[in-house]
Amino acid sequence: MIQILIDSLIRAAELALLGVGLTMVYDVLRFPSFAHVEFGTVGAFIALTISLALPFGPGSSLVIAGIVAMVAVGFLGVATDRAVFSRLRGNSPILLLIASFGVGIVLRFGAQAIWGANAQSYPLPLMRPWLIGDGRLTPSAAAIIVVALVTMLLFHFVLNRTTLGIAMRATADNKDLAEASGIFTERVIRLVWFVGAALAALGGVMLGVATQLHTNMGFEIMLPVFAAVILGGIGNPYGAVLGALVVGFAENIGLAINWGSLASALGLATEDFLFIPVGYKAAIPFTLVIIMLLLRPTGLLGEKRA
């Protein structure tokens, strides 16, 4: 049981870091960016290159490299906005969406051109996991959870104490009014791109720490991230965190549950043991999204629109 809890929290940490920026960009610019997760991929690889070049121990090298990667990718986010999205302000969100699809392809295959198509790993030493009940928690896994938790607390502070946060919350309260009062100056939009892309880079590094680095890593986590964001109500950062937890737990619990008794009770199967094969894990967030769209299209924390 504890192992499921640990695995779910790690997954939720990755999803939340990637999801928060996605939902912020949506909140400000009104389109879901299909390029967002690729900032995670690029960030993870930049951190790899830098950490390999640094002379410190593997742990501290990665910390420094991760911070540098966040800043670099933050600027990359602003740069993509300058180069592409800012030129499309006022166009239909569909056009922006498709442009983001193009930007995502450029980022992913640009990363593949630079770092190659093979999987790579951060040079972290093998560490003895701590045993908690029946669960095993490696120090790096613990670090992922702590980093995500601290980041979310910082983010909560930003939302409540800074101009960016006030502007964002103003739209959550009343979108039309906030737009009419011109609260989203270009400066705020740039900040949103910077923060969103930097958080995605951090998410990418965490993803790389948890498993491996691969140029498809961002794309592979894109649908679960979208699922988390939609579940929480697209445009709502707190919702994205909640959605990340729901998806993280649903994926791990869904695979761990023995569906046999339920299936036989419904007359669908006769086996006593029936588990969802790991290969179908990707179907879980998608199923959640469909159920959510059918029941409550505005998401868990979303508000009804007039």
């Binding site: 879901p32 569909i94 290969g279 179908y280 999204v289």
Partner: peptide, 23 residues
């Protein structure tokens, strides 16, 4: 639903089909 939901659901549906045939 709005087209942003279409984008996400359709890309997910295609992936679901691939996951099913892959497994």
């Amino acid at each position: 639903l709005r087209q942003d939901y279409w984008a996400i659901v359709t890309i997910a549906a295609a992936e679901l089909v691939r996951v099913i045939f892959l497994n």
